[in-house]
Every structure is written in structure tokens, then in C-alpha cells.
């Protein structure tokens, strides 16, 4: 009983997160300006991290947790570098 409830709710949550990722991909592709694309990419990273966490809950393995930590770290560094690039046209001054 409880396994069925959990299975269904995690499936629905994964579908919602997938739709959220689609929304951010549309923003990433559609722009219109560079800062919109970077914001879309940042949100895509956060959504991907959440999707990985739900995969971890479904499989019962904590391995996905580390992948989620690495993805959020990469997303942070990527967004900071891109924002810095937008501001000055170069990453390291």
C-alpha cells in the first residue's frame, strides 16, 4: 500500500520536474537576450538536481545524492562564470 502511494507520487513528481525542465529549455533556446539564457541554464541545473534526488528516492540508493551535489556545484560555477562574462566580456580580469 505505502509502496504504491510512494511509487505514484514520485512518478508524478518526476513528470512535473520534467515539464519544468522543458520550460527552462524553451527559455534557454528562446532567449531573447543572453541574460535570459543564463537564467534558464541556472534553473535547468537546479531542476536536474531535484530530478536526480527523486531518482535516488525511487531506487533507494544514496549514490544519486552525490551526483546531485556535483550537479549543483557545477551549475553554481557555470552561472557565476557566465554572469561575470556578461558583465565585463571576460571571466578573469
Amino acid at each position: 500500500m505505502s509502496a504504491t502511494i510512494l511509487n505514484w507520487s514520485i512518478t508524478i513528481a518526476q513528470i512535473m520536474l520534467g515539464m519544468a525542465m522543458l520550460c527552462t529549455i524553451f527559455r534557454l533556446a528562446g532567449g531573447p537576450r543572453a541574460q535570459d539564457r543564463v537564467l534558464g541554464l541556472d534553473t535547468l541545473y537546479v531542476n536536474a538536481m531535484l530530478l536526480l534526488l527523486t531518482f535516488g528516492m525511487r531506487s533507494g540508493s544514496t549514490l544519486y545524492f552525490e551526483a546531485a551535489l556535483v550537479i549543483s556545484l557545477l551549475g553554481f560555477v557555470a552561472t557565476v562564470a557566465l554572469a561575470k562574462f556578461l558583465m565585463r566580456g571576460e571571466v578573469i580580469e
Partner: peptide, 10 residues
């Protein structure tokens, strides 16, 4: 909430 946020972004 994540879906609403991403929808708002779009």
C-alpha cells in the same frame, strides 16, 4: 512549486 517557478520563467 518548481514547476510553477519554471513556468513563470517561461
Amino acid at each position: 512549486l518548481t514547476l510553477i517557478g519554471s513556468y513563470g520563467l517561461l
